Simulated scan of single mutants.
Amino acid sequence: MHGPASPGWLLVALCAATGAYCLLRMRSGVEEQRGAAGGEALMGFGMAAMAVPAVVFSPPGWVWPAYAVVFGAAGLRALWAARSARHHLHHAVGAAAMVYMAVVMAAAPAHGHAHGASGTPVLTGALLLYFTGYVLLTGVRLVPVVAVAGGGAGADGRAAAGWGDRPELARACRLTMAIGMLAMLLPL
C-alpha cells in the first residue's frame, strides 16, 4: 500500500505500538474503557498488518476478503455500541475505512500493496476529510490545560485515575490511529 519501505515500517511500528497499548488498556477497571480498548487494539494491529511494505510481504489473495469480513463485523459491533457512547461512531467509520481499503487492495493487480491503487475518489476524499477533521479536533482536545497542584488526588478529592483509565491517553491512542489512517488512505 505504501511506496518506500521506511515510511511503511514507521507506520507499522506506530500502529503496532498503539495496538499494544490498547491491549494494556483492556485491563482497566472501567467497563467502557475495556470495550473501547478492545476495538482500538484490533484496529491498531489490523492497520499494522495492512501497512507492512510490499517489498517485504505480499499477502495471498484471501487476506483482503478476510480483512473485509473482520472489520465489517467490528464496524457492526461499533454501530451497536454507539447507542450508548458516541465515540463508537468513530470506531465504525474506522472499520468502514479498513473494509474499503481491503476491497480496494483485493481489486488491485496481483493483490499487492499497490501504490496508487484505484479506490473511488469521492469515497477516498470523504474518508480523508473525516480523518483530517478528527485529527485536528482531537489534537486540540489534547492541548494541556492548567494542572491543579496536589498530590495523588484530583481536585475533588477522589483518587487519580490509573494510567489505563486516563481519557487523554485514550484520545492520544485514537489520534495516533487516525493519523495512521490518513497515511494509509493517501496512496489510494
Score class of each variant (00 low, 15 high):
residue 168 E to N: 09
residue 79 L to P: 00
residue 89 L to M: 08
residue 125 G to H: 05
residue 103 V to M: 12
residue 149 A to D: 08
residue 160 A to Q: 11
residue 96 A to P: 01
residue 98 M to D: 02
residue 174 R to P: 00
residue 116 G to M: 06
residue 101 M to P: 14
residue 152 G to W: 01
residue 93 V to T: 08
residue 109 P to W: 01
residue 150 G to A: 03
residue 145 V to C: 06
residue 171 R to H: 09
residue 92 A to T: 11
residue 119 G to F: 05
residue 137 L to E: 10
residue 150 G to R: 03
residue 176 T to Q: 10
residue 100 Y to Q: 13
residue 170 A to Y: 04
residue 99 V to D: 02
residue 161 A to G: 04
residue 151 G to M: 07
residue 164 G to F: 04
residue 180 G to I: 00
residue 113 H to V: 00
residue 168 E to T: 03
residue 148 V to Y: 06
residue 102 A to P: 05
residue 153 A to V: 13
residue 168 E to D: 14
residue 124 T to Y: 04
residue 140 V to L: 11
residue 154 G to Y: 09
residue 176 T to F: 00
residue 117 A to I: 08
residue 86 R to D: 07
residue 110 A to D: 10
residue 116 G to T: 08
residue 77 R to K: 13
residue 165 D to L: 03
residue 98 M to I: 05
residue 149 A to E: 05
residue 105 M to K: 11
residue 102 A to V: 01
residue 101 M to S: 11
residue 130 Y to D: 10
residue 86 R to N: 02
residue 154 G to L: 14
residue 115 H to Q: 08
residue 120 T to I: 06
residue 118 S to L: 07
residue 168 E to R: 11
residue 134 Y to Q: 15
residue 118 S to W: 00
residue 138 T to L: 12
residue 75 G to F: 02
residue 173 C to M: 07
residue 165 D to C: 07
residue 84 S to K: 10
residue 167 P to N: 12
residue 135 V to Q: 09
residue 118 S to P: 01
residue 142 L to E: 06
residue 94 G to N: 08
residue 128 L to N: 10
residue 161 A to Y: 05
residue 87 H to G: 10
residue 86 R to L: 05
residue 142 L to Q: 09
residue 155 A to Q: 06
residue 76 L to I: 07
residue 180 G to P: 02
residue 153 A to N: 10
residue 177 M to Q: 09
residue 143 V to H: 11
residue 94 G to P: 03
residue 87 H to Y: 11
residue 82 A to M: 04
residue 153 A to K: 15
residue 115 H to R: 14
residue 124 T to Q: 15
residue 165 D to Q: 13
residue 133 G to L: 07
residue 120 T to Y: 11
residue 146 V to K: 14
residue 156 D to N: 15
residue 126 A to Q: 12
residue 102 A to F: 00
residue 93 V to N: 04
residue 121 P to A: 14
residue 180 G to L: 04
residue 97 A to G: 11
residue 153 A to S: 13
residue 93 V to G: 02
residue 133 G to E: 10
residue 165 D to I: 10
residue 141 R to P: 04
residue 163 W to D: 02
residue 92 A to M: 11
residue 161 A to N: 05
residue 114 A to L: 01
residue 95 A to V: 00
residue 138 T to D: 15
residue 136 L to F: 11
residue 108 A to G: 04
residue 174 R to T: 07
residue 133 G to H: 08
residue 134 Y to N: 14
residue 177 M to G: 02
residue 116 G to L: 04
